[in-house]
Design a protein around this nucleic acid. Sequence first.
DNA 1: TCAATAGTGTCTCTTAGACAATATTGA
DNA 2: TCAATATTGTCTAAGAGACACTATTGA
Lengths: 233, 233
Amino acid sequence: MSSIRSPKALLLHPLVSADVALFSLVEGALKVLLVQRSNEPDKGRWALPGAVLDPSRDRSLDDVAHRVLRDKLGLASAVPLTQVHALGGPDRDPRGWSISVLFYALLPLDRVPAVVGDTVEAIAWRDAARPGRGLAFDHATQIEEALVRLRDLVESRVLPLHLLPAQFTLTDLQTAVEAILGVPQEKSAFRRRLKDEPALEAIEGAFRGGNQRPAQLYRAAEGFVFEKGRGGR
Amino acid sequence: MSSIRSPKALLLHPLVSADVALFSLVEGALKVLLVQRSNEPDKGRWALPGAVLDPSRDRSLDDVAHRVLRDKLGLASAVPLTQVHALGGPDRDPRGWSISVLFYALLPLDRVPAVVGDTVEAIAWRDAARPGRGLAFDHATQIEEALVRLRDLVESRVLPLHLLPAQFTLTDLQTAVEAILGVPQEKSAFRRRLKDEPALEAIEGAFRGGNQRPAQLYRAAEGFVFEKGRGGR
DNA sequence: TCAATAGTGTCTCTTAGACAATATTGA
DNA sequence: TCAATATTGTCTAAGAGACACTATTGA
């Protein structure tokens, strides 16, 4: 969406953008949010939401990514973003040499506004592990990379609490971990690991009942962050 | 080194460069290579070697980093590079909005040419964990980040074989790991972990003798790469 | 009482950490 | 034989995996 770019500018400067792989749980499965592009290039194709760096407004690369969430998806509140990498080359965007700085974020489904802004035709939740064919640019690869990084973190025992609602049960948590890793977890061992987990707080007296034994509800501890070097406070 | 940049260009496009934290072992300690800048900005200060992206020559961000090694340090052969992250902002370089894509590499000291090219005043090996004050730009932070990533990999049991010469003993390897992690390793447990390590090959009949019991020499297995998901072949 | 899910206990096996013992070489 | 370093062994403790058992609720 943008100003005029002279051919010379195209040669001397790369186009820099931030793209966001937003992961969420939809009925127990890990999904990634795609948007249908309403502008050229790749108009009509499905892509990760992204935005072009605007040096006059953005103060950092994180800023660009946060702007994506705000402007394209209507996400007002602060969402933790993790940078995956930067990918650049002359051919990945038909407009010329371009750099994509890729981020991912985790959000419970109910915090993502269902209806989106005006720069986007439509949104879709695709299976994170198999987002489908025909994605715009190299976004299929990008999603794969983001998922690798997400799995790395979860494998190293950081809890993906940002995927869960404010209150959740240990079974919910286990389901989230399994959705990310794609591997079933052993219940007893899983819970044993959570014994002295500072990131988790049992909510005194709060349970979720179904037609069976009620489950203790938990919440993320104050100041929890999803990053290496402990997920604890 | 560069063309004229109009103020407008500065506003519309960020300056993109690749910087390389080259780690090596100097007398058993982990060091990072710094160069003294011979041009403005920050002329005379110590910095990570870096180069500005040239869209007409570079085919990827990795290319830029490899160009740094070739042109600034005279390193001809292919050196494995790992991307750490991209860092951008309006104030980190006095020339305006800039992005640095940071890489690190591991090399045995004897593979780094002692004398360097013409764009660099001098080089120095600084302690990786405390590279000193007064570095150019935000390179002190950059080194810290690179070291964090390097430690992550080594903690997850990937062997830093690229730091060692073609032939090395298990004690050499242990020393390298200790230099990176900053923590002494227990000899017996360390060797136990190497038992079925596919990345290591004992060199039949080759030993290094001192005034004591000779040590078996090893080499990196064919196709060894220093990256997550096994250092093995 | 039954179905369904929550939560705990137990046993075995692997690995890590600490520390000791043995092996080999040149001086 | 001694100093110096390489290499292996042993004991203990912590954690992971597998699997079974107990607990609680509404129907």
